[in-house]
Each structure stands twice: as C-alpha cells, then as structure tokens.
Design a protein around this nucleic acid. Structure first.
Length: 425
RNA sequence: GUGGGCGUAGCUCAAUAGGUAGAGCUCCUGAUUGUGGUUCAGGUGGUUGGGGGUUCAAGUCCCCUCGCUCACCCCA
C-alpha cells in the first residue's frame, strides 16, 4: 500500500519550525501595529475574475500559475495566488473609503501558485503583506519602507539594500511601451517566444529578461525614465528624498519591473543571500489604478509582500537564539498508586504560577521519567514518592546545578520561579 | 512547461565482478529494588519508491512509472 503524503509543493511545519514561524508573526504584529496597521483576514478562496482583473491576464501568475476550478455550481473559483487584489476587493466591498484615509492593513496567510517547486519556492507559500490605501504621496511609500526595514532589523538582519525603481503611471507606461515596441519590432524574430508574446501584451516585461542576446539588444533601447510624466518624476524624487532622510539604503535598478500588471510608479524588492536562485525575500510597489480596476473610485495604494518561507530560511541565528522555546519542568511520580493523578495535580499547580510543566504519565520506571526530562531539556524535575507524599513535600532537582532539595508542596512554585530568575540573570 | 541530479531502516549512509540486506544515530529495555543527560549490553524497525523484463539468482543490468531535489522560467 502506498503511503499518503503531503501534496507536492506543500509542507508540514513540525514543532521546531512552527515555533519560529510564530515568533516571526508576533514580531510582524508588534511592528506593524506600531505603525498603525490593523490586520485583515480575507478568504483563501476567491472568484477567479478578481485576479484576472486585478493582477492581470498578461501576468504569468494568472496566465499559467493559478489553482482554478469550477465549484459544484460551475462558478470559477481559485485559491488566491496573492493577497493585494483581495485586500483591494475588500476595500471596495466594505466601503473602506469612508474610514479615515489612508487605510493601513496587513495580512499573514497562505498563497497558492502552481509552479515547479524548488528551493525557496513552494506551491503553498506564506506571505506577510501590508497595504496603504488612499494616499498618493511619496510619504506613504517611504513610511512603508521604513517600517519594513525596522521589521527586518528587529530580527537582526544587516546590510540589506532595497532595490528601487519607478515604472511610471499608466500614461508613462503606455508611451514607453509603444516606444519599446517600435524599437524591438524589427528584431522580433530574434526574440524568445516569451518576449515575442510580451511584445504584444506587455512590452515592459521584456526589460527583465535574462537572455544574453536580448540583454544586448536592450542596451540601445529607449529607457523608461525618459518617458515618465513630470508628476511621476516628482513622486520618485520625493520617495528618494525621504528615504535619504530616514537613512534607508537603496539602489536604483532601472530594469526592475515586476510581474504583476497592477504596479505603477514606485516598485521595490529586497534580496538576500543564501537562498539559491529564489533570492527575493520581499517585493512590492504602488498600484494607483487597482481599486478603480475593481470597481471602486480612483484610489491610490501601495503595499508589499514578504515571502515568509524564504524569510525564515535566512533568519539570522542571533534572532533564533533569542527566541528558543521555553524549557519545562517535568513532574515524575515514583512508584505511587495514583502516580499520574498526583503528577498532574502538581503540574497544574505549577502552570497556575506560570511555570511551563509536563507531567510524566506513562507510569513506567522513574528512570524513564528522568530520561524524558532530559530529552525535553527540562530545567529540572519534581519527584514525588511515598516519603514525600506522606510528608506533604516534593523533591525538586535542578538539572543545571544537579542540586536537589526537599520542599513543601506549597512553596514549590515559588522556589522554582526564583531559581529560574537567578539563572537568567 | 523544459532540463540536470538522486531514491536502501524514522535520519545519515554501507553492501566486493549480479549470490539472497548491514552500520551509526534515533526510539525502547536493562546494568541489585528512588536519580537523567556520559558509558556498556540487548531489542524494535526494510516486500532496497512502485511495476515489468533479463537471469538459476537483481539493491546491483534494461524499460516504464512515481517521488524528492536543483536549475530554467516566474516570483515571495
């Protein structure tokens, strides 16, 4: 019989890693709240047309990577491939324009894309994202990046550089797209199949090609920066001025264009080393036309998404060390009739005092209990046998010092607490 | 979707020119009846990813298939 296993491109996070995920998520909530962001939780299942309209038909995500299927009544649904479009949908649907603007939201949740898995790329992956909707100024762009860096630095990341670019507004993009098409059209035959298709659907995307021949050809191509409207130039200059003011390190990358069609003006990403080919840990940008595209009023917005799986892959060791899991006290009964009951009583008493504790319930030998305690890396064990039971005491053994003493049951929690505090000083 | 590498115990790996599967770690038990983590002894655990073929004989050779992994592509 063949074993049932997890679906390709998904994974189980066992205790060791899920603890780390939780720590990161706590750090997200703490930091983002500090900047006035509230959490939004949107469904994993959405109407397929949300992404067709929001992310764009010419994008690879919508074109070939979505988990799309008809439900029992034939409606086309999909597992969300990203969350910005869903947040924008919620903004329109719940009339969040009637809230004080801009609205600041963050989310943490799984996303799904049907791709060939590899290092740092999964079919179910987790994104941490934040969106600022309803403010068009460069201040929002800068503030978002400042928050992002505070978040990363809070986890001991060092030397990260933001890769920054502007792709202009719709008008700039259309003018540039036309010029790029005119330039490349004579060379159409020498372009890759993908690039030929993009020449018709979205010429901008050809800019980030890696094919050497195409890169060479692009050397002489018109540049996006020459087609920016004065508003777009001003906006980008504003973003840069503010980033300088806040000491954010960035590099301008003129060829940075992102794969989602909704991006306008500011786009950015941060890469990390140690991730192989999938080295981008986060990406984002402005999407001033998205809300309108989804049926709302003309409303600007900007956001980013962090790949949590990748982030955790490169999490600095010092941060992990600071968040090791709590070590328990193990309560071991010795040859008692109702040993498990009594062990549970004591463990429960310790928990009331806030001490992480585990009762040994197997009823095996005391040795087995002691072994369990060291497997669990316990800070100590509470032993209780006939003598202790009769005297109303227990024996507490501190594993670090190897000292043990007989203490009254009512004093146990207090004694353990002070011994913990002493060792962490 | 395309290409490379790899599938032997829970994990990391052995197995001479095809000869009937083994080690370390983990886990469990024990080393005079109430003391772990070290040490020692013993034990659990595999239809060698699956199917077919060649052969007296296949983990080993051939074919198919599945899975894992890395890269392209794309992106987080």
């Amino acid at each position: 019989m063949n074993q049932i296993r997890n679906v390709k491109g998904t994974r189980d996070l066992l205790e060791d890693s899920s603890a780390l995920w939780n720590v990161v998520e706590q750090h997200v909530r703490a930091t983002f709240n500090l900047y006035g962001f509230g959490e939004i939780r949107t469904p994993i299942l959405e109407d397929t047309s949300l992404f067709v309209r929001g992310v764009g038909e010419s994008s690879d995500i919508v074109g070939k990577e979505m988990y799309t299927f008809p439900d029992r009544k034939g409606r086309s649904l999909c597992l969300r491939p990203e969350s910005t479009a869903a947040v924008a949908r919620a903004y329109v649907q719940h009339r969040l324009q009637d809230q004080p603007q801009p609205v600041r939201l963050y989310y943490i949740g799984p996303q799904f894309r049907y791709e060939r898995p590899q290092k740092g790329r999964y079919r179910q992956f987790q994104q941490i994202g934040a969106e600022v909707i309803g403010d068009a100024g460069p201040e929002s762009d800068a503030e978002l990046l400042v928050m992002l860096l505070r978040f990363l630095e809070g986890m001991d990341f060092e030397g990260l550089v933001v890769r920054l670019n502007t792709v202009g507004d719709i008008e700039s993009r259309n003018r540039f797209g036309a010029a790029l098409r005119d330039y490349l059209e004579p060379h159409r035959a020498s372009l890759s199949e993908d690039s030929q298709r993009r020449l018709d659907t979205n010429p901008l995307r050809i800019l980030d090609t890696k094919a050497p021949a195409e890169r060479a050809l692009l050397e002489g191509a018109p540049e996006l920066s020459e087609f920016l409207t004065s508003d777009c130039r001003e906006h980008f200059a504003g973003v840069r001025r503010l980033l300088d003011r806040f000491g954010v390190r960035y590099e301008i990358e003129p060829d940075l264009v992102r794969g989602l069609d909704y991006y306008t003006r500011t786009v950015f990403e941060i890469a990390a080393t140690g991730l192989g080919a999938q080295d981008s840990i986060l990406g984002g940008g402005r999407y001033d036309g998205l809300i309108e595209q989804l049926g709302g009023a003309e409303t600007p917005g900007i956001g980013f998404a962090i790949g949590q799986d990748r982030l955790i892959d490169v999490l600095p060791q010092s941060f992990k060390d600071r968040h090791q899991r709590q070590r328990p006290v193990v309560v071991v009964p010795i040859g008692l009739e109702q040993g498990a009951d009594i062990a549970l009583d004591i463990a429960e008493q310790l928990r009331t005092a806030g001490i992480h504790s585990v009762a040994e319930l197997s009823g095996k030998s005391m040795k087995a209990g002691m072994r369990l305690a060291s497997k669990l890396e316990a800070i100590g064990v509470v032993l209780i046998g006939e003598d202790e039971l009769a005297a109303g005491t227990v024996t507490y053994k501190n594993f670090a010092s190897r000292e043990q003493s007989s203490v009254d049951r009512k004093d146990l929690a207090q004694i353990i607490t002070t011994s913990i505090n002493r060792s962490t000083d």
